[in-house]
Amino acid sequence: MTHPYPTTAYKVLTADQMAALEQEGVFTGAPVDKADGYIHLSTAGQLTETVDKHFAGQSDLHIAAVDLEAMGEAVKWEESRGGQLFPHLYANLPLSAVVAYSPMRREDDGMVRLPVTG
C-alpha cells in the first residue's frame, strides 16, 4: 500500500535514552511519550522545529532515523502542532527499526542534520 507520507521519521533522544536503546534493543518512550500513550516522531521537515521547541538548551542529544514501514500499523499520522500531521508510534521502538542514528549536529543554517542512512 502506498501513501503520501514519508517512510522515514526521526526521534530525538537524550544520550541516556540512546544508550538504553543500544543496550536493551528497544526504546519504550520518554516521559512525554509514556504520558501521551505513543512515541512522538517527526518528519525531516519537522525535526528542527521539534528540537527547538521541545529540547531547547539541551545538549548531548541524538537523532534516530526510524523506518516507518517496518513499524507497519503501529504508526498513525495525527494532527498536532499547527495542524501538521505527525507520525506517532503506538508501540515500543525496536533498535531493528532504527536505520541510522548519530549525535545531533546542526547545519550552517541552523537546521538539524539528519543521520545518514544506508
Rank of each mutant, 00 (worst) to 15 (best):
A15M: 14
A15N: 10
D16A: 09
D16R: 07
D16P: 15
D16T: 14
M18Y: 15
A19Y: 01
A19R: 12
A20I: 14
A20S: 09
L21S: 03
L21R: 05
L21T: 02
E22L: 14
Q23Y: 12
Q23T: 09
E24H: 07
E24P: 13
E24Q: 12
E24D: 14
G25M: 15
G25C: 15
G25A: 05
G25E: 14
G25T: 12
V26R: 04
F27Q: 06
F27Y: 08
F27E: 13
T28S: 03
T28M: 11
T28A: 08
T28L: 07
T28E: 02
T28V: 06
G29N: 08
A30P: 08
P31H: 11
P31K: 15
P31W: 08
V32E: 08
V32G: 04
D33T: 04
D33Y: 03
D33A: 07
K34F: 10
A35I: 05
A35M: 12
A35H: 03
A35K: 14
D36M: 13
D36N: 09
D36Q: 03
D36I: 01
D36F: 06
G37C: 07
G37V: 13
G37Q: 05
Y38F: 11
Y38N: 14
Y38V: 11
I39P: 02
I39T: 05
I39E: 02
H40F: 00
H40Y: 01
L41M: 07
L41R: 04
S42Y: 07
T43V: 07
T43E: 01
A44Y: 02
A44H: 00
G45N: 01
G45M: 04
G45A: 04
Q46C: 08
Q46W: 04
Q46L: 06
Q46T: 05
L47M: 05
L47G: 01
L47K: 00
T48M: 00
T48G: 02
E49D: 02
E49L: 01
E49I: 02
E49K: 00
T50D: 05
V51K: 06
D52L: 09
D52T: 01
D52E: 12
D52W: 03
K53L: 03
H54M: 00
H54R: 01
F55L: 00
F55Q: 03
F55M: 00
F55G: 01
A56P: 08
A56Q: 10
G57V: 06
G57R: 00
Q58H: 14
S59N: 06
D60S: 09
D60N: 13
L61F: 01
L61G: 02
H62T: 14
H62N: 12
H62M: 10
H62S: 15
I63P: 02
A64V: 08
A64P: 15
V66F: 12
V66I: 14
D67R: 05
L68R: 15
L68F: 14
E69S: 11
E69I: 09
A70S: 06
A70R: 08
A70V: 08
A70Q: 12
M71N: 15
M71G: 13
G72T: 08
E73Y: 09
E73G: 13
A74L: 11
A74P: 14
A74G: 15
A74V: 12
V75D: 04
V75L: 04
K76Q: 12
K76C: 09
K76M: 09
K76D: 11
K76W: 00
